[in-house]
């Protein structure tokens, strides 16, 4: 077994074309829609370590809980690419109904995908691409989130100004919660119990109590919020404001005074993700084709890294492989 593992490790290193595997746990993945490329950034050096060519107009990205696979939705061509991260290859591309956008992957490997134009969320078998079950939610399903225990699947319905909570077991809508105008992105509190939804046209963020299934508060942020992420301790929420070109920090920013702050980033920021110890945030600036790296201790943009055109999604790989 040891020999086999060693062999696989060597093969992985070779396929990545270098002595060191670029994709260790904690690698930053950035999805560039215009360039149709997935980019791997080494967070220790903040340099690009790999670029993977994809099918046309990849719009959204999700990483499986075990960190082994990335899923990419190609809304315009009704396809989802499944990327094997250790080998840094597109393992398979499966058809998905309509215009797939929102994605979530369960611990057991079930894939959920929203269809922007048919107002449905589908449960898809990743091996065959077969749609197993479907649930009708509000109009224009945007981002999806699945609680780690797999008990709640939350689908944002942009054109209905609502969030639908789906019971993954029965695959039916448990309840629909009204938020504010044009909700788009969602993040789950890593400590559990709550979620935050960014309402793009309202310029606000709504918090949801996932126990009571109620909206607990809505607070103003910048103009056109399109991305949201929590710090690891669940105390801070970061929101990208596309029209303002800023990141709002709600709660208690780490190492800085309590309250609210807005950090200037690149042009039309969208996806945002934090590293495992919540010291840095990576923000995809869709218009300026770069990634802003925010030092959350100082509350300042530490660096801006050029990436292939139209970056939208950001995710960290969580699994440990390649080393």
């Amino acid at each position: 077994m040891r020999t086999l593992a060693g062999f696989i490790f060597a093969a992985v290193c070779l396929s990545l074309g270098g002595g060191a595997a670029p994709l260790q746990a904690g690698t930053v993945l950035v999805l560039s829609q215009t360039a149709a490329q997935l980019v791997a950034i080494d967070p220790e050096t903040d340099t690009i370590r790999g670029v993977l060519q994809l099918d046309t107009s990849p719009a959204n990205l999700a990483v499986s809980p075990d960190g082994q696979r990335a899923f990419v939705a190609h809304a315009d061509i009704g396809r989802i690419s499944i990327i094997d991260l250790p080998s840094w290859t597109v393992a398979v591309a499966i058809p998905a109904p309509g215009s797939p956008f929102g994605l979530a992957v369960s611990q057991s490997g079930k894939l959920y995908a929203g269809d922007w134009n048919s107002d449905q969320v589908h449960e898809i078998d990743t091996a065959t691409g077969r749609v197993l079950r479907s649930a009708v939610i509000g109009k224009a399903p945007a981002h999806l989130a699945l609680t780690p225990d797999g008990q709640l699947l939350i689908a944002v319905a942009r054109e209905t100004n609502a969030v639908s909570i789906i019971d993954p077991a029965s695959f039916t809508v448990k309840t629909t919660l009204a938020v504010e105008r044009a909700p788009f992105a969602i993040a789950l509190n890593p400590r559990g119990g709550s979620a935050v939804v960014a309402n793009a046209q309202a310029g606000s963020a709504s918090t949801i109590d996932l126990g009571k299934l109620t909206v607990t508060a809505s607070v103003p942020v910048g103009a056109m919020p399109y991305g949201v992420a929590y710090s690891g301790d669940g105390a801070t929420v970061l929101i990208t404001n596309q029209q303002s070109g800023t990141v709002s920090i709600l709660g208690r920013p780490m190492g800085s005074p309590a309250g609210r702050a807005a950090i200037k980033v690149g042009s039309y920021p969208e996806g945002i993700a934090l590293n495992s110890d919540s010291t840095r945030a990576y923000v995809a600036n869709w218009f300026s084709d770069d990634v802003s790296i925010i030092d959350l201790t100082s509350g300042k943009e530490a660096a801006r890294l050029k990436v292939p055109g139209g970056p939208r999604g950001v995710a960290f790989t969580t699994g440990s492989f390649g080393r």
């Binding site: 215009s99 134009n117 107002d119 224009a140 054109e159």
Partner: peptide
């Protein structure tokens, strides 16, 4: 013409 906004800007 369902959505006044699409998935790919």
């Amino acid at each position: 013409m369902a959505a006044a906004h699409g998935p790919t800007p």
